[in-house]
């Protein structure tokens, strides 16, 4: 169980990026965090994985306070961030260096097969496409079998087709060991395809504005009416969360049509 207890983050320059975030995520749950830019989504993820320490409150994983990167928590960044001097197999096995060689190679090979990069094991990262590199990054984060996998806008730099493909891939990988997934995204469709629960954040200071359950049956049909229903709710919540920033009060119809298009 991952628990955030009144987590806040104030940067040295006085910017309050996060304020009073309370959150409980049960094992195996998939949570998506959406919100306008600058609402502290990435800061939240960095606090959970211990790359940044919160200035107020604490993050607990199975009762243990997280203050620095933890072996049970893996992270995938917006960019693949593969190490260019290691082959794909070595990159994927990066977190297993202390393992016996045979076991490590075995597990890396399985992971590469699972993400469809079985034939790329000996290749340098520069030879991969963006989508392939991101799949390798996901494999690298999953290979140590973390309990919690954090994803910081992992597919935002990819084209629409690759993105949909990788979303399916991610779900497929997730179903294997069912780690907790926390996904930051600014793609509402992506949030609904993947998540059980969607958190809409509000900026200045970053707070959880609304929580929306997306308990649709899996695999999810992007065209279904229920999908559309959840999407409308998320977009409406996003729109309301940005209300403060609006200068002019816009008409109802305008707001509905323009909902979610502002970013």
């Amino acid at each position: 169980m991952l628990v955030l207890d009144r987590v806040g983050k104030t940067y040295p320059n006085g910017v309050r990026a996060l304020d009073g975030i309370d959150l409980k995520v049960s094992p195996g749950e998939v949570v998506a965090v959406v919100g306008g830019s600058g609402c502290g989504k990435s800061t939240l993820l960095r606090a959970i994985c211990g790359l940044d320490t919160p200035s107020q409150g604490r993050v607990l994983l199975d009762g243990e306070t997280i203050t620095s990167p933890h072996e049970k928590i893996g992270i995938v960044f917006q960019e693949a961030r593969l190490l260019p001097w290691l082959s794909i197999a070595e990159n994927v096995g990066f977190g297993l260096e202390s393992w016996p060689r045979a076991e490590r190679e075995q597990r890396v090979a399985t992971a590469l097969d699972r993400v469809g990069l079985g034939d790329k094991a000996g290749v340098w990262p520069r030879e991969l496409s963006g989508g392939q590199a991101q799949r390798a990054a996901i494999a690298r984060a999953l290979v140590p079998r973390p309990e919690v996998l954090l994803l910081d806008e992992p597919f935002s730099a990819l084209d629409a087709f690759t993105r949909a493909d990788l979303q399916d891939h991610l779900l497929d990988l997730w179903s294997e060991n069912r780690p907790t997934l926390i996904l930051v995204t600014h793609d509402v469709d992506e949030a609904i395809v993947l998540a059980d629960r969607i958190l809409v954040m509000r900026p200045r200071p970053g707070r959880i504005y609304e929580e929306i359950a997306a308990d649709l049956p899996r695999p999810r049909d992007r065209q279904s009416a229920s999908f559309d229903h959840v999407k409308r709710r998320v977009l409406a919540a996003l729109d309301r969360s940005m209300q403060r920033e609006r200068r002019v009060d816009e008409g109802e119809t305008r707001s509905e049509a323009g909902a979610g298009l502002w970013w």
Binding site: C49, L51, S68, P69, H70, E71, G74, I75, F77, E79, R81, L83, F94, G95
Partner: peptide, 11 residues
């Protein structure tokens, strides 16, 4: 710095 962060994330 981003690559260094990968190192930090892997402790």
């Amino acid at each position: 710095r981003k690559i260094v962060e990968v190192g930090r994330a892997f402790r």
